[in-house]
């Protein structure tokens, strides 16, 4: 039993235990790179690219990066609209939301964000599902 517990702890303990989430995401620069990668992938995904047709993508990139910096404990104050207002009448579906999450995960994997940090960020963003998705 004791060996089991020890094994579990070893398996699960992130190496970067001393860093907070903002640092694990690579601070401002790392976050901006991941968000850019995500939006780039979104742009190539016919399932959801249509939502961004007439959108100022540089602005969205800035705001999402700022928001992630903010919620991950970084020195930013998110200056955009709340999620309900900014996604209103867009008709974002559950499938769209999952597609974007897949691109975010792919972007984080590509930039070697540790799994523990990926999960923390996803855990912070997933509750926004209710405000963004309109079924």
């Amino acid at each position: 039993m004791r060996i089991g517990v020890l094994l579990a702890v070893l398996l699960f303990t992130p190496l970067s235990i001393a860093q907070n989430l903002y640092q694990q995401l690579g601070e401002k620069e790392g976050i901006e790179t991941v968000v850019e990668e995500m939006l780039y992938r979104v742009g190539g995904d016919d399932r959801i690219a249509h939502h961004f047709t007439d959108v100022d993508i540089m602005r969205v990139h800035k705001l999402i990066s700022e928001q992630i910096c903010d919620v991950s404990g970084g020195p930013c104050d998110y200056s955009g609209d709340d999620m309900k207002t900014s996604h209103r009448n867009m008709g974002v579906t559950n499938a769209d939301f999952n597609a974007l999450v897949e691109h975010l995960i792919a972007a984080m994997e590509k930039h070697d964000i540790p799994v523990s940090a990926q999960n923390q960020l996803l855990g912070l963003l997933a509750p926004m599902h209710g405000d963004i998705v309109e079924n």
């Binding site: 620069e29 850019e36 742009g43 961004f52 993508i57 540089m58």
Partner: peptide, 29 residues
């Protein structure tokens, strides 16, 4: 529209954004 986002990302004024030109040939079956 596909190029819309990607063009903006690539040619945007943002310094980090301008750096990325790796075309990941992701396909979505």
């Amino acid at each position: 529209m596909k190029m819309n986002i990607r063009d903006s990302l690539v040619y945007g004024s943002h310094s980090i954004l301008a750096g990325v030109l790796l075309f990941s040939s992701a396909t979505f079956a």
